[in-house]
Structures are given as structure tokens and as C-alpha cells.
Design a protein around this nucleic acid. Structure first.
Lengths: 225, 225, 225, 225
DNA sequence: AATGAATGAGGCTTCATTCAT
DNA sequence: CATGAATGAAGCCTCATTCAT
């Protein structure tokens, strides 16, 4: 759950290519954009440095002016995407008091928004794919994203249970129920191309999920079950 | 959501190797076991045929007696895992009439059981990883698993809504809410090593999720919303 | 001072090449022969593995079946050449008692013989060239050859001085006078193509050198100097 | 046997670099100094132009303002070192009449002096290393140094023999006996780090060698041998 | 004149695949 | 059937050289 703006410098670079030599400016970012694209399409290992270079509008060797190795490219990719997440959304959650359900609603909406953009899910998907082979990126992503987001949500739910806003559930496991559906929705789309007829429909997904979730988390009326 | 019955011949083969010449039958399955293991650990592309051979207790060349290429190994892997799923569980679902919620409960429990075993999630994870690079396996898995399971569940929910057993939700999207949490739970475990303190706890996860889910799907008491 | 027989398997291999695949036998030695040749001609760094392979009559990849890297090839080269030297000639020297001058004569003749063959000096020359860049080979050659030969000669001379067979010289430095000329002779030939009109004439060189050396080492007649 | 007068501007340049922009003159010499240092340490081929530039305190591109290629750098190096030798010492030798042994003594002392300085042997060693790969430098060094020094010494000895100052030896081969030990001494030091306990001790080496050499060259007393 | 970013040919090494045994 | 030596295409990375600034 991250995403990155990724300005399309790539296209511009391609146009300027006719010139024999080019000049510096935002090269590392261009390269990371290109790498993200190709690693996403072909996977880290099969993607060729030459293709990344071409996509970035530079030469093979130029990449090594900014990144010492292919693996460093991957790590740089994750690192760049991971930084902004850290503090932005989570303050809101951790600081909350009172009924946590509006916060949950806001959180899911926010995540949905981040994912909707083009390649909004590219980095997480890449992490999932390559985590087994490149443990560093799994660790980095875990430490910077998961280990911050998950406890925040868990705490929010725990506090909701204590405050009587939420039925007596296991907070740690309930987090899966909260975000799992959103995750699954995107994965079905990204991996198998499975999506509702009217496009990604991520807003409708969140709405539908929230309807069920809120009812499901609501404290039992009297004691019925 | 599959798993592979394929008994762990791998380990046995390795043990017997030094002694007796390996048995002549069941070779392809041994190879697929080895391939699954190595593709899971290192990824498809970085895994070497030689390692697969060693893991299977045979020679490099012997693999090619049964599989024409590395890619065929991957496809064979998916195909093997995919076949049994097809018909087993889904009949139950498609055939159902009446309150669908017990079926949902049974379904999730069943899937949880399949995943719990060692490498019960290996194949789906492999599909997720390699789908972008090897479209064939994405297609195959989609056609054989997803396109059977998803509509079955969707129909079950739709019918539940019609029958008044389930609140008025979008069946297609609700499927994500039903199975997403289970999926997320396993992925957190497999990719990041994140799991509850008492182990995978997949049964507790299902219990907790079902509690929320059933309450969330229950028809509104009178008509409020 | 070493040399190696180096049977010309190379040529034969070339003839057999028309066959698509070849069989194993003395492959590592063939490869070392080829490597020695090419490293000698072009130097270690500029020599290409592909050329070594071609010279050896095999494919690029086949080299790596026997040697893990280019550097290992160089080290293997030195190691192979170095082993035989160790014990052969030096026993004679170390064991000697009495007038050492006949032994010196024998020693120089022996070394001259070893050098005379084709490429008899190839390995030492390679060591000299690459020692600065690949310290391992310098160390290996030093430990296996120099550190055995030099002390043996030094001891021989020291004992000759003590026994009154040799004038009062510094044994450690005199070793340079004993073998330096032979060394210089070969180097002039190998590096600059400078040799007497009648070919390498190494026997004549030794004769001439011995004449001077023996007179030079002889104890002073009465006491003059 | 040469050495290079070229004052060690290298070290100075490095020190001044951070402060003032470097002086505009004498750049080529700085570059050659840097090149000599790096070629000596790593060898011609492995040494990188960038490192040479850094060592010289200038930029990569600046080298190409003075030398058209890496090879030209090597050749320039040799050429610079070679010029002074040509005329200086050899006049003395060629012009000599009478007993040549004092001249030999003077010559060896002179060469020893040239070698003693830091890197006094760097160029010859470089020539030896790269001669096989870059024939131009071998030829140049030969023509400018060897072909001048060797015949001069040969002639000196020949004349000594004719004049009865030296025993009846082959002048061409005797040259090896005269200078070989000095050469060997330095090579043992430079290549293998082998030197007498009290340092290079090149003066003692020359003394010891001369003792033997003079006695060895002296005409036979009456006829004994 | 000087810089150093950029290029791209080329080298080492890997590994899927073949095939002689 | 099985083996594993051998092949050779291909990938990562280096670095001499160029040239826009």
C-alpha cells in the first residue's frame, strides 16, 4: 500500500534522445521510474538493465553512474516509495480517541485513493514478488510500512473494543478483515485482470466492504448472535 | 487458494539417494515437487535447472525427458495443483439452496485447512509472482481456479441476498470481503513473516473473521440502514 | 625457473573440433596450456577467456567446468608449474659437503637445460609480469620456488666459504652473482629478442659465466686482494 | 636500467589540489607521473584512466588534451624515461681506453645509484611487464636503451680482453655476468619482496659482486685455472 | 582549457539446453 | 532411460573515449 506519483519524465526523455549527449537533472528518478515499470512487467530477474536504460532514455552505462548494481536499483525503488508512507496517514490513526469506525472508513478510502492512480500498486506488488528472493526489500518494506501501519490499526481496533464501539473481536486478526478485501480486490485485478464490469470500481468496493464491515463490527444489540 | 496434495516425496528422495538407485516411476511428480520448492524459494527465473535436478535426485538431462523446457516445468506445476481444486469443493457451493451462510463458513474452513499444510500456499504464491512474466500460468490458473471459484461464491451470495438471508450487498464485490482476509493473513505470513504470536493461527483467524462477516452480512433487523 | 613439458594436445583438439560434442580426458591441462600461451602473449588481463577456450579447442563455458574464474586459471597455471621444482634439484644442493663449486656448475647447467625448451621460461616470466597485480601468485611462487632455491644456494655458498673453498664473500648477495647472469640472458632474449648471433646459446652463456664465476670465487692465492 | 629524473610532482599535486587551482604548466609530466605510478601498481591494462586522472589531480577528460589514448600514455612514459639515459653514461664508456675494469666499477655504481631512488626501477619493470603486449614500447626501449648500453659495454670488455686487462672471455656474453646480478637483485626485491635484512643494500650488493667479478675477470696469473 | 556525464563496445560469467556415451 | 560434459547465447558490469557545457 503505497504508490508513487511518478511523473512521466520518461516520455520526455525519449523525445530528447536524438541529441547525442544529454545533461543531468533528475536522472536517478527517471531511472527508478523505468526500473519500476520493467520490473513490474517482467519481474526483477528477467528484466534487463539495457531495457531499463532504454526506457529511461539513457545508455546502459549511465545507470551505473547512479546505482551500483541492479539490486541497488530494486532497493532504491522500494526505498523511494516507502518513505512518504511512513508518517502521513498513520498519525491520524494513532492519535484517535472515541469511535474508531469513522477512522477506519477514512483509512480505507485513503488507501483506495492511493491505489487508484496508475501504478499505485506497483511497488507493493513488486515487493510481494521479489521478497523471497531479495530478503532486504522484504525487510525494508516490512519495517517501514507494515510494522507501522499494522500496529496502528490494531491499536485503533483494540481501543474501539475497549470503548464499546466495536464488538469483542481479536484486534490483531481483525486487521486482516479490515484491509484484506481491498488487497484482494487489487490483486485480482493486477494479477488476473479480474475486475467488475465497470472498471476497477475501487470506490464501490470500499463502499460495499464498509457496509458489511461496519455492521459486522457493531456491538451486539442485546446479546443475540 | 489451492495447495497441492502431492505427497512430500522430495524429502524422501533426498534421503534415499545415496543408497539405492531411485525408483523408476513417479519421476515427473518428483521433479515438480523439486521445482515447486526451488521456484518458491528463489523465484522462477533465478532458480537453476541443475538445482531442481539435484533436489529431485536426478540429473539435469533427465528433467528434459519429462519436460521440454523450464517454462513447461512451471506450467506443469500449476496444472498439477489446479486440477483437483476444480471440481471438489465447488459442487457443494453451486448446488446449494437456502441460507448460504453455513456454506460460506464451511468454505472458509475448507480453504484454511488446505492452506495450513506445509507449502499449502506455495502454488498460488508462485502464480502471483510469475503471472506478469508468464501469462500462460496466469491464464491457466484463472481459468481453472478463479473463474470457477469466484462465480460460485458470487452466485451463492447473490442467491442469499435474493432469499433474504443476506443483507443487500453487491455479490461480486462481497466475495472480496469473504475471502480477502484469509488471503491477506497468509500473505502477511509468507511474504513478511508476520503472524500472531501463537503461530499461523489460521483457525482463530477464520473464527474471528466469520464472527464479523456473519454479523456484517446478516439482514438489517427492521429496515434501518 | 621452471618449465613444463606441455604436450601439444592443443593441436589435436583443434582437429577433432568438427565433432559437435567432445569427451573428457585431460581437459584441465589443455586449458592451462592454452591459458599459459595466451597469458604469455597478451598478458593476463588483456587475454580473453574466449581466446583461451578457442586455443584449448573447447567452448567458453567449458573452462568454467574446471576453473571457477579467470584468476583461478592463472593460479592453477603457476601451481602446476611450481610443484615439480620443489624437491627435485634442491636435494642435491642442500645435501652437499665439500667444495661447492662443482655443485654450482651442475646447478646452472640444470637450470639452463630447463629453460632451453620451448616456453621453459613462460611461467616465471608470467609471474614477474603479474605479481604486482595478483599478489597471490607472487606469494605462491615465492614460497614454493624462491624460498626453497635461494636458501639452498645461499647455504651452499656459505659452507664453501667456511670450508675455504670460496673466497670470503657474502653468501646471500653472491647468489645474485651466481644466477643473475643466466636470468638476464633469458630476459634479454624473451623481452627484447636480444640474443647472440648463433641463437640463444645458453650453453655458451653458462660456460662463459662459469669461467668468470669460478675464478671470481676462488680463494685468494696468498692474501692479496 | 634507467630510472626517471622527473621530480615527484605527484605527491605535491595531490596536496595542493584542495586549495588552489593547479598550475597550468607541466601538466603532461604530472600525468605521466601518475600513470607510471598506477601502471606500476596495477599493470597497464587494469589501471583505469580515471585513477590516473585522480592521481594527477585533474579530470579524466584533461588527460586526452595531452595524450590521445591510454597506450600513448604508456609510450610517453617510456619515451620520457629513455631519453636522458641515452647519452649521459655511455659516452664515458665508449670513450674509454686502457684498463676497463675501473669503468665497469663506475658503471655499476652509477646504475645502482639510479635504481636506489624511489621508483628508480619502475620504468624498466613496466617495460618488462608490457613488452609482450605492446611491442612498440619494447622496441623503443630496446633501441634507445639496450642497443646503446649493451654494445658499449660489450665493446669495453672486448677492448679489455684485447689489451690483456681481462681474461679471454666472450664479451657479448660477459655483459650478462656484469649486469645480471644487479638486475636480479632488484627484481627479487621488486617482485617478491626479497631483500637482505638490512634493506635493499644495493651498495653492498655491488661491492660483493665487484669483488667476485674483478677477480673473475682478471687475467690468469701464469696459466693455472 | 577543463570537466565529468554519457556512451557503448566488450569482457567475464551464468545457465538452459543438447547429445555422446 | 540416464548422465553430465559441453555449448553458446545472453546478461551484468567496466571503462576508454567523447563532447556538451
Amino acid at each position: 500500500m503505497t504508490g508513487r506519483p511518478a511523473q512521466n519524465r520518461t516520455a520526455d526523455a525519449a523525445k530528447r534522445k536524438p541529441k547525442f549527449r544529454r545533461r543531468a537533472e533528475a536522472r536517478p528518478d527517471d531511472i527508478l521510474d523505468a526500473a519500476l515499470k520493467l520490473f513490474s512487467i517482467k519481474g526483477f530477474s528477467p528484466a534487463r538493465m539495457e531495457d531499463v536504460a532504454k526506457e529511461a532514455g539513457i545508455s546502459k552505462g549511465a545507470i551505473y553512474l547512479y546505482f551500483p548494481s541492479k539490486k541497488a536499483l530494486l532497493e532504491g525503488l522500494i526505498r523511494r516509495a516507502v518513505v512518504p508512507v511512513a508518517d502521513s496517514a498513520l498519525q491520524m490513526i494513532a492519535a484517535h480517541r472515541g469511535d474508531p469506525r469513522p477512522v477506519i472508513r477514512k483509512f480505507l478510502t485513503m488507501v483506495a485513493g492511493a491505489i487508484k492512480g496508475p501504478d499505485g500498486f506497483a511497488v507493493p506488488k513488486l515487493v510481494i514478488r521479489e521478497a523471497a528472493a531479495v530478503p532486504e526489500i522484504a525487510r525494508m518494506y516490512r519495517e517501514e510500512v507494515i510494522d507501522k501501519a499494522l500496529p496502528a490499526m490494531t491499536g485503533l481496533i483494540a481501543q474501539g473494543v475497549e470503548g464499546g464501539y466495536i464488538r469483542d473481536v481479536d484486534p490483531e486478526l481483525t486487521v486482516r478483515t479490515v484491509i484484506g478485501p481491498l488487497f484482494m480486490h487489487v490483486l485480482l485485478d493486477e494479477v488476473f485482470g479480474i475486475r467488475p464490469e465497470d472498471g476497477l470500481a475501487i470506490d464501490r468496493l470500499v463502499d460495499n466492504h464498509l457496509t458489511i464491515l461496519m455492521a459486522g463490527l457493531a456491538p451486539e444489540r442485546n446479546g443475540a448472535r
